[in-house]
């Protein structure tokens, strides 16, 4: 979740950038997650599109997100190659479990069991 406080001394684009970075680092935003479009996020947060676009540009130049043409912006995998591949595999697994209607608890239990075996 993103929160923008218009009365804060920190500029909105910086608030946005820092929150995105924190969420990517903590794993709250998993690798491969699609981000809202610039226009949509600007409308939701009551910001100018340029403000959101600037935050996205800086996040992209720092390697946190990547733009895939018309498909939009996505969270980049972080860390070394193994970590990046692991994050992408986790994302694919989570999407599949969601599509199958499996609860997060059951999915985690299966993964734990599989890793133990």
């Amino acid at each position: 979740m993103l929160t923008i406080d218009a009365r804060s001394a920190t500029p909105p684009f910086e608030q946005l950038r820092v929150q995105f970075m924190d969420q990517v680092r903590s794993g709250e935003l998993a690798a491969g997650t699609r981000l809202p479009t610039v226009r949509r996020l600007a409308e939701d947060l009551g910001l100018a599109p340029n403000t959101v676009a600037r935050a996205y540009r800086e996040l992209e130049s720092d390697g946190f997100i990547e733009t895939r043409g018309r498909n939009g912006s996505f969270v980049s995998a972080q860390g070394d190659v193994a970590e990046q591949q692991g994050q992408l595999a986790a994302r694919a697994f989570a999407d599949r479990m969601r599509a199958l209607g499996v609860s997060p608890d059951a999915a985690l239990a299966w993964v734990t069991k599989a890793l133990a075996g």
Partner: peptide, 12 residues
């Protein structure tokens, strides 16, 4: 339109 703080989802 809410006044003050605004929240939005970070994923699409």
């Amino acid at each position: 339109l809410p006044e003050g703080e605004r929240v939005a989802r970070s994923g699409a």
